[in-house]
């Protein structure tokens, strides 16, 4: 019994400690971000990596999510003759939830893990120490560009995912299931609000912060060689994904 409490207690302390370290990293990243020079090149490189290179996977995810959503919604709505609402359902779900969340999860898997692996390797091969010795702060050089890229690129990816998701839904709804296209679009435009889209984008920026911060944190504080790098990568993906889903609830509760 005491063992259990002890284990839980230790876990809790570890969690709080780790959370504190993440916040500390965020704070130092924020501090280093505003100190000159602005490392635009490094930022652009990360933006390419996080944003441009994730485009294909995000488009695929978005399009098929929208498509399958249309299919499922159609079967449900047909029961009471509300097929015309398929479009609005797809659009609402994409802009408010699925666009931001799925995009972030995909990018976590792609880029968040890569951040952890890259920084982890740099840590265990002393490259991060080398940066320190060359009077280049690795937080500014490595962490800040990744976080900036995450925060800036996720909304861009999300709006594209929203769009192709709606498009995918349209193709299935209008093309395959033969819902009247005029009604489909009109209902969608009528029900979706600007706020839905923008709140979705705000959420995705928060998720971008989470996934890049967690990826960098896990990588930056890696210990224990190749195995440690592997562990850091896995943990980064798990922690970032879970944090995204949990924070999604609170962000949604706060916004909508």
């Amino acid at each position: 019994m005491i063992k259990i409490i002890e284990t839980i207690g230790r876990g809790l302390i570890r969690f709080i400690e780790e959370f504190g370290q993440v916040m500390f990293l965020l704070m130092s990243a924020a501090t280093w971000m505003v100190r000159p020079p602005a490392r635009l090149r490094a930022i652009f490189k990360q933006m390419e990596f996080v944003g441009v290179n994730s485009l294909a996977v995000v488009i695929l995810t978005g399009a098929f999510t929208g498509a399958v959503l249309a299919l499922q919604a159609y079967h449900g709505f047909r029961l009471f003759g509300a097929e015309s609402l398929v479009g609005s359902t797809v659009a609402l779900a994409m802009t408010r939830e699925l666009g931001p969340v799925l995009t972030s999860l995909m990018v976590t898997g792609r880029a968040g893990s890569a951040m952890a692996a890259e920084l982890g390797t740099m840590r265990v091969t002393e490259q991060i120490d080398a940066l320190y010795t060359m009077a280049t702060n690795p937080i500014k050089y490595l962490v800040v560009p990744r976080i900036v890229a995450g925060v800036l690129m996720l909304p861009v990816l999300t709006i594209i995912a929203d769009f192709v998701g709606i498009l995918g839904g349209y193709i299935v709804g209008v093309g395959l299931l033969e819902i009247n296209s005029g009604i489909y679009v009109a209902k969608m435009i009528e029900i979706v609000e600007l706020e839905d889209i923008f709140n979705g984008l705000v959420k995705s920026a928060c998720f971008g912060l989470i996934l890049s911060l967690v990826g960098c944190y896990k990588g930056f504080y890696t210990t224990g060689g190749a195995q440690g790098v592997g562990q850091a990568t896995t943990r980064a993906v798990v922690i970032a994904s879970v944090s995204i889903l949990i924070s999604d609830y609170f962000l949604t509760a706060a916004m909508f």
């Binding site: 933006m47 944003g51 441009v52 485009l55 909304p155 861009v156 709006i159 769009f163 979706v192 600007l194």
Partner: peptide
Amino acid sequence: AKVGFFVVIGMIVLAYMSMKVG
């Protein structure tokens, strides 16, 4: 160029969707 192009596409999509919906 790639990043710029990408961001511009995102902004166009956003503008288009906002105009439709807003």
